[in-house]
Every structure is written in C-alpha cells, then in structure tokens.
C-alpha cells in the first residue's frame, strides 16, 4: 500500500534563513515515526508543514496521495484529517473542557451537539479525565491539559496525529500520563508523527526514528538500529549527549 504521508524535496526558509532543505520522508499507515534532533534543527517546522501551518517554498507533501500544495486541494479538509498536539497545549481558555472538544466537530463537521458531546465524553474516558468535562482549562494540571488537547484532536477523527514535543512543557511527574495515552493510541493503530526528547518512548513505541540536524534528515531507521548502531557521526554525537 502507498504511504499515507509522502514528503519529497521539501524546502522551507524564513526570509534568508533556510530551515529545511530537501527533506524526503514517508510515513506508512499505522506507523509511529519519531523525530529527534537538537533544538533549532527544524523538527517543528517540518511537522507544521505537514498540516500547512507553515507554507513550504518548494517540494511536495502528499497526504493519501493528495498534494497539499495543489491549488485545488482543500487545506481545511486536510487539517481535519491531520490532527495536531502542541507543546503548549493551546486549549481554549474561555471554553469548558467538553466545549474545547466539541467546538470543531460542531462548527467544522456540522455534527449535532448531542453527538459531539457523546463523542467528547467517550474521548475523556479514554484519556482518563471524564470528571473534568465541566472544568475550565485553567484548573487543569499540565498533564491533564495535554490529555484534553489529545482528546480534542481525536474528536475530529483524524487519520494522522502530529505531536510537537507534547511532554516538554510538563513537570517530570506528569510526563508518564501523557506518554501512556500516546502509547495506547499507537497500539490502536493511529498513524503518528512525534517530535520528542523522550528517547525511552522513541525506542519503545517508535516504528522508525528520524534524526534531524541543521534542516536535513541525517539518518533514519528502526529504533534499535538508530540508537544502538548509528551509522552517522553526527547521530552518534547527538545520542551521546542525550542518552
């Protein structure tokens, strides 16, 4: 079967500053791809190109065969199929947890409110927070906020979930609860692209690990190969710093 995401020759610059050069990468259905690399290497930018929060200058991105850069592609429709979870959660602070989750299904998918609420409650069960439905985001801990953000992304029933350092803003004792939810999703067969510094998660859950540095993919492969037998000198140097 064709890969669900195909990135070919992707380049992105901000003004003079080239952040991604000639990125080629594929993600298969139900695959969990983990992107690692030093800060500033372009990991977030690459992820944000996948739902066109950033507009690349050249190359192509195909999701299920449809090019995102084709003028006839409805980018909003693509975004409903490619969910995103942010480092800073970005929950809507003026809405209760349940309304954070139902907003987009109701407004974008035109679901009836009861259906959206039923789905929201089901997802809150899944992330272990059914009792927080009527709470406001300000009253949640970081770990709870991120689990709600995951539920909010899942409410659109996306085919792919992108995670940009989902645990980096959390206190250490809350990292586990979020990684737990992500592991469960991976087990259910969700296609995921995860930028993270959690090497344990990358090794345990990742089907493939991509190492980026300086806007290029330096090396990629199954976690046991990349972590235990890195081929590239730069990969070795990075791993010796973080492991």
């Amino acid at each position: 079967m064709n890969p669900i995401i195909e990135v070919t020759g992707l380049s992105k610059s901000f003004g003079e500053h080239t952040v991604l050069r000639d990125i080629n990468m594929t993600v298969d259905r139900q695959e969990v791809v983990v992107i690692i690399g030093p800060s500033g290497s372009g990991k977030s930018t690459l992820l944000r190109c996948l739902n066109l929060l950033e507009q690349p200058q050249s190359g192509d991105i195909r999701i299920e065969g449809r090019s995102l850069l084709d003028k006839t592609t409805d980018i909003r429709e693509i975004r409903t199929e490619v969910g995103m979870v942010f480092q800073q959660f970005n929950l809507f602070p003026h809405l209760k947890v349940v309304d954070n989750i139902t907003l987009s299904p109701v407004r974008v998918r035109n679901w009836p409110l009861e259906q959206a609420r039923a789905k929201a409650m089901e997802l809150l069960e899944k992330v272990g927070l059914p009792e927080k439905a009527a709470a406001y985001p300000a009253s949640l801990s970081g770990g709870q906020s991120q689990r709600v953000a995951i539920a909010r992304a899942l409410a659109m029933e996306p085919k792919i979930l992108l995670f940009d350092e989902p645990t980096s803003a959390l206190d250490p004792e809350m990292v586990g609860e979020v990684l737990g939810v992500m592991k469960a999703l991976a087990k259910e067969g969700m296609t995921m692209v995860v930028v993270t510094h959690e090497m344990g998660f990358a090794r345990e859950v990742g089907d493939r690990v991509v190492f980026m540095e300086g806007g290029v993919i330096v090396e990629q492969g199954p976690p046991e190969e990349l972590f235990d037998k890195p081929k590239n000198e730069r990969t070795r140097a990075f791993l010796s710093r973080v492991l």
Binding site: M84, F92, S104
Partner: peptide, 27 residues
C-alpha cells in the same frame, strides 16, 4: 491573544472567520 490559539483552531480545520468568532474574539 497568544498565536497558539489561532494555530490550534486552524489545525482543527476551522476557517479564519470561525477561529476569530469562536476562539479569538471571545477571549
């Protein structure tokens, strides 16, 4: 309003107008 709010709304498939109306303006 933090720009992450608009990004989160866009990432959920909302149009600019919907994001303004339901996410940005109420805050």
């Amino acid at each position: 309003i933090d720009k992450g709010q608009m990004e989160a709304a866009m990432a959920l498939g909302m149009s600019h107008t919907q994001a303004m109306r339901h996410v940005i303006l109420p805050q």
